[in-house]
């Protein structure tokens, strides 16, 4: 589904964020990308989102080379991915409902679909009571749940999460990870980056370990070892 072919990313000043990274993610997999800050985890996700392009090598989404895709076709690809960020990145002037509805609207979904799906997905992340609250009126954990709801509402093929539990307490972290597991069980490919050892060790899923932009370990049922 996602294939990194000898990908390197060199930022100005000869800073190598990724060097010669090759791996593949199959449909339905749950992959954790771990490593210390600056190891290249976020860069890796940015490549999948076509937010950044490799300096060398190619990133494929199915058979599409994301490096050569034209800018106007990028939104259509992104609609097949859901993304969750560490700092949630919700639209501050929109309510929980509107934040999620925006993603559906951007994908061209009908109004009646939006009206029925948004409450459903908010229910799935346990936030039925906060439908009309703005992000500023919610706690960190609640915001992250809205962000997850937003990411999954279009039933994406792959869910990308960059440090989704980075700002959360252990209880919220556990709950959020349970939601990710549930989404994965329903068939969505999940790729998360994290440096939270507890999260990884409990998962017993595939772990790719990055160090200085290189893959130093790729294990089927891995643990957090650095």
């Amino acid at each position: 589904m996602i294939y990194f072919d000898k990908v390197s990313k060199i930022y100005p000043g000869d800073v190598a964020a990724l060097s010669d990274v090759t791996f593949a993610v199959e449909p339905g997999e749950f992959v954790s990308v771990v490593g210390q800050s600056g190891a290249g985890k976020s860069t890796l996700l940015k490549m999948i989102l076509a937010e950044d392009t490799p300096t060398e090598g190619s990133v494929f989404f199915e058979s599409i080379d994301l490096k050569s895709i034209r800018a106007k076709h990028i939104p259509a690809i992104r609609r097949r991915m859901g993304c969750v960020f560490q700092e949630h990145r919700l639209l501050p002037d929109k309510t929980a409902f509107e934040n999620i509805a925006f993603t559906m609207e951007a994908a061209g979904r009908a109004d009646d679909e939006i009206a029925s799906d948004v409450p459903h997905v908010l229910d799935l992340v346990g936030l039925s009571s906060k439908v009309w609250n703005f992000p500023g009126e919610m706690s960190g954990g609640e915001r992250q749940r809205v962000a997850i709801a937003r990411a999954i509402v279009n039933q994406p093929d792959v869910l990308l999460a960059d440090e989704p539990t980075g700002n959360l307490d252990p209880l919220n972290t556990n709950e959020i990870m349970q939601i990710f597991k549930k989404i994965n069980d329903l068939g969505t490919t999940v790729i998360i980056t994290t440096h939270n050892k507890g999260v990884i060790d409990n998962l017993c899923k595939r772990v790719i370990t990055l160090e200085n932009g290189k893959i130093i370990r790729d294990e089927k049922e891995g643990r957090y070892i650095i």
Partner: peptide, 16 residues
């Protein structure tokens, strides 16, 4: 600007 970048990441076209 932050909102604009988020809108694009969730798949909104530039015109939208």
């Amino acid at each position: 600007r932050e909102e604009i970048s988020v809108m694009r990441l969730v798949g909104a076209s530039d015109n939208y």
